[in-house]
Design a protein around this nucleic acid. Structure first.
Length: 223
DNA sequence: GCGACAG
DNA sequence: ATCTTGTCGC
C-alpha cells in the first residue's frame, strides 16, 4: 500500500481536511480481537534514516505472532499536527510485509485528539480501512483533570468543548497515557483494549514490542 | 509579543 | 524522536 506525501504544510493540511470525513469515529469496533498490531518508528540521530516496525500480537496471550519492518527516510519534516506524514509511508510499507492480518492497529501517537481531529491513528485507519486507536505518551491538545492513582482510573480529554480522548492510568501510580479514537472504534472500546494490553507496563505490549523491533532494525541498518 | 507543540 | 549518569524505589 502507498500514499501520496504532500510537499508543503498547506498541502498536508489539505490532505487531512479531505480525509477527515472518511474516519469512522463511532465504531464500536471489535470487542474480542484475536490479533492486535502495534506500530512504532525509530530515528537515527542524523535524522535522515528511520525504521518502522509492526508487530502482531495474539490478544489472548500477548505473544508476538508476526512482525515486519521497513527502513527509509522521513517523508516530511516534523511539524506538530502533521506528524503522520513523517511516518506514514514507512509504516504502510511495514504493514505490507505482514502475513497475519491484524484486526486493530494500536498507534504510537494520537487519533482524534488532534488540532484538526485527524492524527496519525485516524490517518492510518482511513488509509488501511482497519480499526485503529491512538495511544500517546504526552498531550498534543486538550485539557483534563488528573485521573485517580489506580490502574483504570481516567478522566476525559477535552478540546474546544468536545471530548477528544481519555487520559488513562494504565498502572497504579504511573503517568497516564492519552487514548483517542482513530477509526472504526468507540472511545470506550479503545480504553478497554488498552487496558487489556497493559497487564504489566505503562505502555501497551503492542507498542513495546514494535519499539524494540524498530530500534533493532535501525541499528542493523546503520551498519 | 509570548507560550504550546504527538514523535 | 534522540543526546545522556546517576539515582530512587521495589
Amino acid at each position: 500500500m502507498q500514499v501520496d506525501t504532500p510537499r508543503t504544510v498547506a498541502e498536508a493540511v489539505a490532505v487531512q481536511d479531505r480525509l477527515r470525513p472518511l474516519a469512522d469515529l463511532v465504531g464500536p469496533g471489535p470487542r474480542r480481537p484475536a490479533m492486535v498490531a502495534g506500530l512504532d518508528v525509530a530515528y537515527a540521530e542524523s535524522g535522515d534514516l528511520l525504521a518502522a516496525a509492526v508487530t502482531v500480537l495474539d490478544a489472548a496471550t500477548l505473544t508476538v505472532v508476526d512482525r515486519a519492518v521497513s527502513v527509509g527516510r522521513p517523508a516530511f519534516d516534523y511539524v506538530p499536527g502533521l506528524f503522520a506524514f513523517r511516518e506514514l509511508p514507512a509504516l504502510l510499507a511495514a504493514l505490507d510485509g505482514l502475513t497475519v492480518q491484524p484486526e486493530l492497529l494500536v498507534c504510537d501517537g494520537h487519533g482524534l485528539a488532534h488540532p484538526r481531529r485527524f492524527g496519525l491513528a485516524c490517518h492510518l485507519g482511513v488509509v488501511t480501512g482497519l480499526p485503529a486507536i491512538g495511544v500517546g505518551k504526552t498531550r498534543l491538545v486538550g485539557e483534563s483533570a488528573e485521573p485517580g492513582p489506580r490502574r483504570g482510573d481516567s478522566t476525559p480529554l477535552i478540546d474546544g468543548g468536545e471530548t477528544v480522548g481519555r487520559v488513562l492510568r494504565t498502572r497504579d501510580g504511573v503517568k497516564p497515557v492519552f487514548v483517542s479514537v482513530g477509526h472504526r472504534m468507540s472511545l470506550d472500546n479503545a480504553v478497554d483494549q488498552v487496558l487489556a494490553l497493559t497487564p504489566r507496563y505503562r505502555l501497551p505490549e503492542t507498542t513495546r514490542t514494535a519499539d524494540r523491533l524498530c530500534r533493532d532494525a535501525l541499528a542493523a541498518a546503520r551498519t
